[in-house]
Design a protein around this nucleic acid. Structure first.
Lengths: 340, 340
DNA sequence: TGCTTTTGCGCAATCGATTGCATTGAACGT
DNA sequence: ACGTTCAATGCAATCGATTGCGCAAAAGCA
């Protein structure tokens, strides 16, 4: 690699000291320097193709202008829009981000946090925390600016940007109720995740408020937010013998699995059973019968989490909202049938 | 942030010089040190929770153990699997990656390369280059290890890991031919990209070899690999009045757009017109009529590109294949109808 | 004009880890 | 027993940028 131009090179070229060059190139501290000198240095820097060495400046200032972005899995379509939202704020401000995939594995999460710390990130945006996540809480307590997005760590002071799960689930349940459904099953997400737990709690609250008296086995709990678990939980529900007319699923992939499993049992959606999802992942509108779901604002959630993080990194004493809840929207498609 | 433990801290604690600590902790250079000392230092380091500062070591050694990963858009489902493939190699070796999204914008690409250079990346994996991309070629010429994946920069020495476009297109065309189709249109990808250009050339070659005599306007060229352009090109094809029975599209999203546009004109796929895609993006099997397409190996492409890059970074004199072509596979679904 | 204040810039330490060279002490050979 | 060799560790420079302090010259003041 051709040796890059350094401050020293510019200093030699312009006949001044490197500290002068440093000051001349610093847009903030350009105090007490002749404009003539500043101009001379800046043109020289430009001409020589100077690019500041972020490593060196990071070492000295203890600010690397790097943030860590922890995801469960970038290949899960839920997360790329969050990433873009985050970048939309960070990149213009000069931050670069290191993305790591935890695969929902606590041990990996631990290793990856270490990786981020070794690289001296200025802050961390965590889209894959567990409801209880002592390690991340500890890192945060040590003073590392941190925000969670999409999920949250319960009983912690870590700011979270989440979607209105309670509102979304309630709205969906009312929608099913208004469509005539009374026997409504729920395929819940993993109870170790705030989204899985929160949506299940919301389901219980909302059914109670509606006066629905559902059997104990109306809820099947999945261990992963994926199609296979959607299928397994559907089998579990069918095996109870209970005659439900709708399944409210904690996310879209569980719902896709549920629809598939219903078909295998000769039950069609929505003719025999209505199914609803959550998140509104891409291409859902093209997949028959068109999953009725709750659209969440992934990009905005990413954007807002980055805004909060920047504030935490640059204004340590600023007041940061503990929880930011974004509104959601019911998307009506074909997977819910009105019954009488 | 609580001050991290440094070599100096360990040196003070164990009563030796920092250079001794450095050597004791270096798995390679642990030569000529008493095992007793090494052991004492290593346990102390462990106990104190030492984490090496990658910035400092990178500054000194000029190896940051960081690579840049340039994508068009992480939200495009084609790319996350490539990213995971890349990480599967880099992460275990201690590399972190900085991901940037070019959005197919040359100016942005330039800025982002600068960002990567400032951060002293040891190498770059580029999944979003143009067929002609002088800036990236220049960076490569300066000695920056670089590999392109999925696409390639033509007339350059930059190693590329790509899929067998010629083979895939030929296979698909033969498949259509064998299904009785003779009037076959092509919606080509952007001609500024090696994939768009290459697949179109392959289409021409393969039609010639089959003795198909297609009209000039059998090919509609898109400006982006997306649904809207698929629709526009389909309108263009329909407007010619030529009676084609199949459209071979340069990628899946163009194909989805094409099917949609055909429907709007009262033409169904595959009953009136057969349509084929390329890439085999997720959920395609769930979208009727099931797009017949070519499956490419994204994860493996990512993995191999990372393997090549690692080799370039660690063995500067190693021989690196200029082009690595991965096999593809035709996935038969319902969007092609056999005609007589 | 002589003294104080301000301005403009250089000096040198610093961030944490690495590494060529110097040094010390012990082992070795004769 | 004494010079030589080698093993084990210390010393100090270095990577590139930043920044508190200091110094000299210029400006301001009476």
């Amino acid at each position: 690699m051709t040796k890059p131009v350094t401050l020293k090179d510019i200093a030699r070229e312009t006949g001044v000291h490197v500290s002068t060059v440093s000051r001349a190139l610093d847009p903030n501290a350009r105090t007490s320097l002749t404009t003539e000198v500043v101009e001379r240095i800046r043109t020289a820097a430009e001409r020589m193709g100077y690019r500041p060495n972020r490593l060196a400046s990071g070492l000295r200032t203890r600010r690397t202008m790097t943030v860590g972005l922890m995801l469960p899995d970038i290949a899960n379509t839920l997360f790329p829009p969050i990433v873009r939202g985050v970048e939309s704020i960070l990149e213009p401000k000069g931050y670069a981000s290191i993305i790591v995939n935890t695969d929902g594995d606590r041990e990996r999460e631990g290793k990856l946090v270490d990786v981020l710390l070794q690289r001296g990130v200025d802050g961390i945006i965590h889209a894959a925390p567990y409801r209880s996540d002592p390690r991340m809480v500890a890192v945060s307590r040590q003073g590392m600016p941190m925000v969670t997005v999409n999920r949250q760590i319960e009983n912690s002071q870590i700011p979270a940007v989440i979607n209105d799960d309670a509102g979304g689930i309630a709205e969906m349940l009312h929608y099913l109720y208004d469509s005539g459904h009374r026997q409504i099953a729920h395929i819940a997400g993993p109870q170790t995740l705030s989204t899985g737990r929160g949506r299940m709690e919301a389901f219980k609250v909302a059914t109670r408020e509606l006066g629905l008296d559902l059997p104990e086995h109306a809820i099947a709990v999945s261990s992963h937010f994926d199609e296979d678990e959607g299928r397994r939980c559907t089998r579990e529900l069918l095996a109870t013998g209970w005659k439900f007319t709708a399944i409210l699923c904690a996310n879209d992939r569980l719902a896709l699995g549920a629809i598939d499993e219903l078909h295998r049992h000769g039950l069609s959606c929505p003719d025999h059973v209505s199914v609803t999802g959550y998140n509104d992942i891409p291409f859902l509108d093209l997949i028959p019968p068109g999953l009725t779901t709750i659209r969440i604002q992934q990009f905005d959630a990413g954007r807002m989490s980055a805004e909060l993080l920047v504030k935490m990194m640059t204004e340590p004493d600023a007041t940061i909202p503990r929880t930011t809840i974004l509104p959601v929207k019911l998307i009506e498609r074909g997977s819910v049938k009105r019954i009488t």
